[in-house]
Amino acid sequence: MSTEDIAVPALEIHDLTVSYQKRPVLYGVDVTVPAGSLVGVVGPNGAGKSTLIKSVMELVQFSDGWVKVFGEDLKNNISRVGYVPQRESVDWDFPVSVIDVVLMGCYGRLGLIRRPGKEEKEKAHAALKKVGLEAYAKRQIANLSGGQQQRVFLARALAQESDLYLMDEPFAGVDAATESAIVELLREIRDQGKTLIVVHHDLGSAREYFDMMLLLNMRVVAFGKTEEVFTGDLLQQTYGGRLTVLSEIAEKFAKEQS
């Protein structure tokens, strides 16, 4: 692995195994992501891409392995991590306005009981402006288009001011113009020395968007600089279906464990 001279990696995943309803989703995933990189996670449907970042956030339980964020357990460094979930994960009928949602990004820093003050509100408005939604601040969130909702989530992550961002399909349901605007934004964040790990489903655009790529299909097929990893052979291994023996035995094993 070609690491620059940055001592502490942003994210270190060691032999991570995750099963969901007795089916293995990830099996022995082992990755170290250097700080300051823009990483795309690609793989076929059901490859465990979302599960990977959810398990980093400890939103799913893993049966084996461990994760370190900037060399520490997640709970010690939780304020340095921002997570952008898929759009479907929340109830958009919820009675909150756009600015309320973005303000939630500041909640982690505020601690218990304290209310978001003037400073937080300014930050939230700045974040909204960055994603081009400042005109919509007072709208109820159900009255936004899919792409706009996605950008609200991005703005919320910006307001979190994290060092490591994990994004689950931020381009889903987004039109082309918005997509390129988001990519610009991601690069800008990367240029500030922050690390981004982005789940992406479109192989074609992945090549131009990301510096590094993680090819995933239940296991890590390859991880490295985009130009090194983006080879026909490795892509064939990623998208050419699961290794039958591996998935059969992993499934059997997950069942035995329960």
Partner: peptide
């Protein structure tokens, strides 16, 4: 076959060996 590093496979095999 599955692109794992050879120094990362022992622990897993310790478990799987009983169930094949």
């Amino acid at each position: 076959e599955a692109n794992y590093a050879s120094d990362h496979v022992h622990d897993d095999a310790e478990k799987v060996e009983h169930f094949l």
